[in-house]
Amino acid sequence: MRHHSHTRFRPIAALPRHERGSALMEAAFALPVLILLLIGIVIYGSWFMTAHSLQQAANDAARASVAGLDAAERRALVDQSIAASRAAFPAPAAQTIAIGTDESGGYYTVTLSYDLANAPVFAATPIPMPASTLRRSAVVRIGTQ
């Protein structure tokens, strides 16, 4: 019986290196994580842009309401301002933005609500959103009569 010690007990450093598939294995582990991270950045970036646009629309409507002499005129100015803001709204179904107004104690509040289910990018995402409805408000002081 012949003993082949040179093939049986090789040091680890002497083993042949098979590096052809290592890049593929690294990509298989890293790519899903990177893709999920990229999707999260896009989704949350869109969410923040939508929230900012809604806040800007509320701010503009509240400022426009200051020119109104009574509650009906203020509401008409708010509706007119929101109609103009809808054209530049970054998410679809801007016509579904709900408008609420309140006048009390010398302050006028404009509250806008947008249901994220109206935007396919938010409705179909596997990433949880902070809220299903965006609500933004703006308050201005109106002159007492």
Rank of each mutant, 00 (worst) to 15 (best):
M1Q: 04
R2F: 08
R2S: 07
H3T: 12
S5E: 13
H6C: 06
R8W: 14
F9C: 10
F9A: 12
F9T: 11
R10Q: 11
A13C: 11
R17Q: 02
R17P: 01
E19F: 11
R20N: 01
G21W: 07
A23G: 15
M25W: 13
M25I: 15
L31N: 06
L31Y: 07
P32M: 09
V33T: 00
L34Y: 01
I35W: 02
I35V: 13
I35K: 03
L36Y: 01
L37T: 08
L37C: 13
L38Q: 08
I39A: 08
G40N: 05
V42K: 03
V42M: 14
I43A: 12
I43V: 15
Y44L: 15
S46H: 14
W47S: 06
M49P: 00
A51F: 06
H52N: 15
H52G: 13
S53W: 03
S53Y: 02
L54C: 10
L54G: 08
Q56D: 11
A57R: 09
A58C: 03
N59Y: 03
N59Q: 13
N59K: 10
A61S: 14
A61W: 03
A61V: 10
A64D: 02
A64I: 05
A64C: 06
A64K: 01
A64M: 06
A67Q: 11
G68V: 01
D70V: 01
A71E: 11
A71T: 11
E73K: 01
R74A: 07
A76T: 04
L77G: 00
V78M: 04
Q80C: 04
Q80I: 02
I82V: 15
A83M: 03
S85T: 04
S85C: 04
A88Q: 04
F89H: 06
P90T: 08
A91C: 08
P92Y: 08
P92T: 08
A93I: 01
A94R: 10
A94H: 06
T96H: 14
A98G: 08
A98I: 08
T101G: 13
T101F: 11
T101H: 12
G105T: 10
T109F: 07
T109D: 12
T109R: 15
V110G: 07
T111G: 03
T111N: 07
S113E: 12
S113M: 05
D115R: 02
D115S: 09
L116V: 08
L116Y: 00
A117T: 09
A117W: 06
N118H: 15
A119T: 10
A119F: 05
P120D: 09
P120R: 12
P120H: 05
V121D: 09
A123N: 10
A123L: 06
P128G: 07
M129S: 05
M129G: 01
M129C: 04
P130S: 11
T133F: 04
T133Q: 14
L134G: 03
L134N: 09
R135F: 00
R135P: 02
I142Y: 00
G143Q: 11
T144H: 11
T144K: 10
Q145T: 04
Q145Y: 10
Q145L: 09
